[in-house]
Simulated assay, not measured.
Amino acid sequence: MEHSIDIVIPTYKPGAVFEKLIYRLQKQTVKPERIIVVNTGEEYWEQAEFDKSPFIFGTLAGIRLELYHIKESEFDHGGTRRWAANKSQAEYMLFMTQDAMPADQYLVANLLKSANQDPLIGAAYARQLPAADCGIIERYTREFNYGEKSRIKSEADVAELGIKTYFCSNVCAMYRRNIYLSAGGFVKHTIFNEDMICAGNMIQKGYKIAYAADARVIHSHNYSGKEQFKRNFDLAVSQAQHPEIFQAVSSESEGVKMVKKTAAYLIQKKYYWLLPELLLQSGCKYIGYRMGKKYRMLPRRVILKCTSNKSYWKEKKSEVVTN
């Protein structure tokens, strides 16, 4: 039985990597009906000169590519994806980021296979593999968060997995449309973490989340300590704003576990010189997280220095974000 699939990709200043992503999606063994691109900043798209590339636009290989532009002030991690999801009527919606590269031609097929294991599965997310330039510490982090074994998670796993029960990444995640809608979809306004908030709502309503280890994308970053601080500040803000999802589970214990395992790995491999870097990055993550949890106590000027998403703190959002 065939299933209808739309792929949704938010973009910002896209370049050659994005063009390669579109090419690889067109080569998938299971093809989507549409690729819906929501680009932030039309002026950046024009600078990229993609209009000169018939290789991307229109209908190619049976896939329709649709392009929508929004202003930078209109972008919201949850609201923009929610708006894009409302443009789809497909049975499944695959959300990706512009820098997530399919590792092979079976990405969509394996996500679909995973999502169809159980009619209660609301979302299936892919394994993220490190890129060639990925640092040693981040490479191990990929392995820690995205292991070799697939798993289906439900409310029954909270006691064992804690916050990882709700883990789902819109770097590459396929949602079953009817369950997505039943769970309320992506929140209209969030600084970050729209994927875990949605997954948490699904699980609390009795649905399930699948981790598909055989669906693989190449995706990693070499963040600085400052970037880690800001990223974890925003993460904690999103958790503080959604106690209905995160209050009963702790992120800190999982973070401590990852630091310990990473340190043990570095010692085992005799990468002793990386231990100070691990401690620095872990400290930046922890301080950013703790400050984000207490953001309501911070002056606005401090918040704007801590966040990586200054536009989120503006008072007004457009209809593109809120509908």
Score class of each variant (00 low, 15 high):
K269Y: 06
K270C: 07
Y265F: 15
S238H: 02
V237G: 02
G255L: 06
A248Q: 11
K270D: 09
S250P: 00
Q247K: 14
K257I: 00
S253I: 13
Q241N: 10
Y265R: 14
A263E: 13
H242A: 10
H242R: 14
S253P: 00
R231P: 00
S250T: 03
Q241M: 09
Q247T: 01
S253G: 03
Q241T: 00
K261C: 04
P243C: 13
V259W: 06
I267Y: 11
V256Q: 14
Q268D: 05
L266P: 00
V256N: 08
P243R: 14
E254T: 10
K270V: 02
S250R: 08
V259C: 03
Q239W: 15
S251T: 12
A248V: 02
N232D: 07
L235R: 12
I245M: 07
L266V: 02
S253M: 07
N232L: 11
T262D: 08
Q241C: 03
F233A: 10
E244I: 00
A263H: 05
M258P: 00
E252C: 01
Y265L: 07
L266D: 07
K260C: 08
S250K: 10
Y271M: 01
H242S: 14
Q268F: 05
V249G: 12
E252H: 02
K257H: 10
A240N: 02
S238N: 02
Q241P: 00
E244N: 11
F246I: 03
V259Y: 05
K260M: 06
N232R: 15
Q268I: 01
I267S: 04
E244K: 14
I267F: 08
A263N: 05
R231V: 01
E254N: 12
Q241S: 02
F246L: 10
K269V: 03
N232I: 02
A264S: 13
S251W: 15
A263Y: 09
Y265T: 02
K260Q: 07
K260W: 04
L235M: 10
